[in-house]
Design a protein around this nucleic acid. Structure first.
Ligand SMILES: [Zn+2]
Ligand SMILES: [Zn+2]
Ligand SMILES: [Zn+2]
Ligand SMILES: [Zn+2]
Lengths: 155, 155
DNA sequence: TATAGGACCTCTAGTCACCAGAGGTTCAAG
DNA sequence: CTTGAACCTCTGGTGACTAGAGGTCCTATA
């Protein structure tokens, strides 16, 4: 019909986002419901393609869907100042930095574990020992573990 | 009754693992079902406490529940050689390192984004621009994004 | 010993961001 | 017109929990 006329599969090919995911984005309101053919199949225009690409890129930066929603809203108001975007990106950067530092500590601990390990039998294994013993744990014994904040990065 | 006799809440306090999580571990077979009081409440012994602590520590290292299961099985055979543990830890270390490198790349990109940003109006915002444009994306346009592997770290 | 209230019980459903599959319909090339 | 790839909806699953409803039990104090 109009200049551009993509099926959902076309959109998937152009954006690298799976068909099922595009439909999912529609159900959660990230993508607007497109018009349909007489046979009930989705047909998208260039605008939808751009929008989906924007989403794909934002997700690749690890923004949550909440944040993506926010970004889309902002992008839809081109005459407003863009401070909020700045804030969103800065926030995301902090998240990522925190995750990196948490994971770096973890890496060091794992690496220690591996290096103090000299093989042998399970009974004498230092790794098992380390996992069994919590005398080194903080009092009150909070097993912080990996917080959700630390553990995930957006996908 | 026997030497040690903990309620589920006691276990939670001693290990830092929430009551609901302990019950969850039981349903998925990580913790064996303990005996009950006449009134149907769980009563644990020292063995259960140790096991739960082991689990807590392993989870804090970011091992998946699958891996924890594996570790528990190994720990239950103290006369066997402990190579498998070595392998499990090494595997985990590689995972963590991969995540760190992925996140480090991401951090750099976000940081770039922030620094090439000089405020103003959304229409001219470089961040929005970067998110909208995919001329810099690889041909075939695979939006790798963050793979699940990259994105999570065990919790 | 009676009672108050904190701790416990089960079960369901929600989280995040999708993905897989079943079972059926439509579209487009040949 | 036929074929088969692509589309449709709907359901359920993923990992590792967490929250809450609605009810029962345990135990310390008066
Ligand atoms: Zn060992
Ligand atoms: Zn501990
Ligand atoms: Zn801007
Ligand atoms: Zn792109």
């Amino acid at each position: 019909m109009v200049p551009s006329d993509y099926s959902i599969g076309d959109l998937a090919r152009h954006t690298g986002i799976k068909v099922a995911t595009i439909r999912y984005y529609e159900t959660v309101g990230l993508m607007p419901p497109p018009p349909r053919t007489e046979g009930n199949q989705r047909r998208y225009g260039k605008g939808a393609l751009d929008r989906l690409n924007f989403i794909a890129h934002a997700r690749a930066f690890g923004f949550s869907m909440e944040a993506v929603r926010h970004l889309l809203t902002i992008a839809a108001h081109p005459e407003q100042p863009c401070e909020d975007i700045d804030a969103l990106v800065a926030e995301r950067l902090v998240e990522v930095e925190m995750k990196i530092s948490g994971l770096t500590r973890l890496r060091d601990e794992l690496s220690d574990l591996l290096h103090t390990h000299d093989g042998g039998v399970v009974r004498e294994c230092r790794i098992i020992e380390a996992l069994s013993d919590h005398s080194a744990c903080p009092p009150g014994h909070k097993h912080h573990g990996l917080t959700a904040e630390l553990a995930t990065v957006g996908k």
